[in-house]
């Protein structure tokens, strides 16, 4: 005879399962390849003797490669697939028709995406920051920004995976068109792009002005994404409660 599953237990169960489903060799290798590029750049920064301001160059490099590409794409691949894959292939029913609340399923899926994405982003970014050899400041700033970025992007993409079929394609559309194009046009629009916050953290901690994007204080740049994360997870749980399961 079964009894209901406690929320904490449910989070653990969903987390454990989805990590196994998400970690395929192909995905890990492909995403590590992306990070290797970053390492090569960092090495070049270190070896180069013609740079006027190596620190500034490094920050710009991490901004462009790390926080426009690596962090959002890695988070998208895993968070979009976390519940989105289950939903599309019809296995979501095995998590849905259970004596568990909805929110622990969403939180477990988010944590699974985060658990897989963090090592694949923070570690390569951190190593690259050390390779660049421009001081510990860059390491700390990069790690903090990557952490915030992975948490918030993952939450938003978990929600997206429950809302849309082909969520990964829409996610790419968001990253390229919204964050890469439309958000550049105005500060109000820029505040609606997650990338503005990760790069604000980077810019503030390193005390360097980056072009475009209105910057916000480090405190806000951490607090606002956390609020966005919570709201996205809340909406995802509500969506899981009301959606139709195949």
């Amino acid at each position: 005879m079964s009894a209901s599953v406690s929320p904490l237990r449910a989070i653990g169960l969903v987390h454990g399962l989805l990590i196994r489903q998400l970690l395929t060799r192909g995905r890990i290798l492909a995403l590590l390849a992306l990070s290797v590029l970053l390492g090569v750049v960092s090495l070049s920064v270190r070896l180069s003797d013609t740079l006027e301001n190596p620190l500034r160059s490094s920050v710009e490099i991490f901004d462009v490669v790390g926080f426009t590409l690596v962090v959002p794409i890695v988070a998208l691949v895993f968070a979009g697939a976390a519940l989105g894959d289950s939903r599309e292939d019809g296995t979501l029913v095995y998590l849905w028709l259970r004596p568990m609340d909805r929110w622990p399923v969403v939180v477990g899926a988010w944590l699974a995406a985060v658990s897989v994405s963090l090592p694949l982003t923070v570690v390569p970014l951190g190593i690259s920051a050390m390779i660049a050899g421009v001081g510990e400041g860059l390491l700390m700033a990069t790690v903090l920004a990557a952490l915030v970025g992975v948490l918030v992007y993952s939450a938003v993409f978990v929600l997206l995976g429950l809302l849309l079929k082909n969520s990964i394609i829409w996610g790419i559309g968001y990253i390229l068109i919204w964050e890469g194009l439309i958000a550049q046009f105005g500060s109000a629009l820029g505040k609606a792009a997650l990338r503005g916050y990760t790069r604000s953290i980077l810019a503030n901690r390193m005390d360097i002005d980056l072009d475009g994007f209105s910057e916000v204080s480090t405190a806000s740049a951490v607090a606002i994404p956390i609020v966005v994360t919570i709201v996205a997870l809340f909406l995802a749980a509500a969506r899981l409660r009301t959606m139709e399961i195949d």
């Binding site: 079964s2 209901s4 196994r20 095995y94």
Partner: peptide, 23 residues
């Protein structure tokens, strides 16, 4: 539908169903 958590063994799949049902 034929879909299952394909990366689990039969035992893991059934045990997972038991765990998520609070057995």
């Amino acid at each position: 539908q034929d879909a299952m958590f394909d990366r689990l063994s039969a035992f893991e799949f059934v045990e997972y169903a038991a765990l998520t049902n609070g057995v």
